[in-house]
Computed example of a mutant assay.
Amino acid sequence: MSNPESFRELCRKEIHTGPTSGVLPGYIQANLLILPKCVAESFEDLCTRNPVACPILSKTEGGPQFLRNHASLIKQGTFDIRTDFPRYNVYSRGKLVQQKNNCVNEWSSDHVGFLIGCSFTFEHALEKAGLVPKNVLYNKNVSMFRTTKFLDSAGIFHQCPYVVSMRPYKLTEVEIVREITRKFKKTHGEPLDWGYDGAKRLGIEDLQKPDYGDPIDIGEQEIPMFWACGVTPQLAVTTVGDRIEGSVIGHTPGHMLILDATDVDWC
């Protein structure tokens, strides 16, 4: 693959079905949540109230191949929200019921799709600074954890926990990592917390047992650093459970949409 358009085609043809960390570095990656229209406004309000955890990049407008303000993100005619992620999670009444390589059968005219900023976007900037994230270095999915930190409530969404992604760095690297990622405000920005005390504050009990993704080794001279994560909206869906009627679709954690816009365009 040489560009995002050709990579999306690989996903559409179900040739690439794995995680996207480290794929086409320098391009923006996006998380997904597709909801029935009856709860889409509540979800958009949730994102507005929690822009660090749930930064909206765009939403569908007029069908699964059209995005609001799409021109700055993706070329018209080269995108379909139902097929261009490598893998999808399908929820019913708040329960994960299936993982698929497309959601064509689940999508209806009653759905609205949201693209949410992803921390994979800033990994290229860390690489350029010589601070390659271990998940990229070892070709693993990033570690993601459910926390005891809650989003500000909106509409039907109440008592919804944050999900965070974790990348280990040396204590001497913390400030430069914060400085680099701080610029990426539309893709979660700088870390929420760091260190083993930070893990305790977030309610994370075992750093080698992530709720999503792969375990990432933390070296003796390293500490964990935690960023808000775009899996948070899917956890919000499971939290409110059967208050949502109809199918809800998200990306499988770590399996993102790659857009045509670059990190330089959007940081």
Rank of each mutant, 00 (worst) to 15 (best):
D45P: 03
H188A: 02
L207V: 09
D206C: 13
Y91A: 13
E190T: 05
D152V: 07
R82C: 11
S58V: 02
L46R: 08
S143G: 07
L151N: 12
E106D: 09
I216W: 11
F150Q: 10
L46I: 08
L207C: 06
D80V: 04
P161E: 04
T262A: 06
F66M: 07
R49N: 09
S153P: 07
K75E: 09
W107E: 09
S153F: 10
L10S: 13
P253Y: 06
K134P: 01
L137S: 13
L96A: 12
S109A: 06
L257S: 06
D260N: 02
P55V: 03
K149I: 11
V248S: 05
L96T: 15
S92L: 15
L202D: 03
T17G: 03
L151M: 12
F157A: 02
D197C: 08
P133T: 05
C229W: 01
M256G: 02
D265S: 13
T252E: 10
P215N: 06
D110N: 11
G213K: 10
L67H: 05
P64D: 01
I204V: 12
Q65F: 04
E106L: 05
G18A: 14
E9V: 01
N135D: 03
F85R: 09
V248L: 05
G117R: 01
K149G: 09
F85V: 09
P55K: 01
Q99K: 12
C11P: 00
G203R: 05
Q221K: 08
I249C: 15
K140W: 05
C160G: 11
E205V: 12
G117Q: 02
E61D: 14
D214L: 01
R68K: 15
T60M: 10
H16Q: 13
H255Y: 08
G230A: 02
Q29E: 10
K149C: 12
A129W: 05
L10N: 03
C11A: 08
V163K: 00
Q221I: 04
T187F: 02
T172H: 07
R201W: 09
E179H: 08
I74D: 00
D265M: 11
T187L: 02
Q221H: 05
G203C: 09
M1G: 00
P86M: 14
D260E: 03
T239Y: 15
G62M: 00
H124K: 11
C160W: 11
G219H: 07
P161W: 01
E220H: 11
R146N: 13
T187P: 00
Q221F: 04
G189E: 04
K13R: 13
G62P: 00
D193E: 13
Q76C: 08
L57I: 06
T181C: 02
A30T: 01
D80R: 04
C118N: 03
Y88G: 03
T238F: 06
C38Y: 14
E44K: 09
G155R: 07
N139E: 13
S92C: 14
C160M: 10
Q99T: 13
E190L: 05
L46W: 08
D193R: 05
T83R: 14
K140S: 11
V240M: 08
K95M: 15
L192G: 03
L171S: 09
G250D: 05
C103K: 06
T148K: 14
Q234T: 12
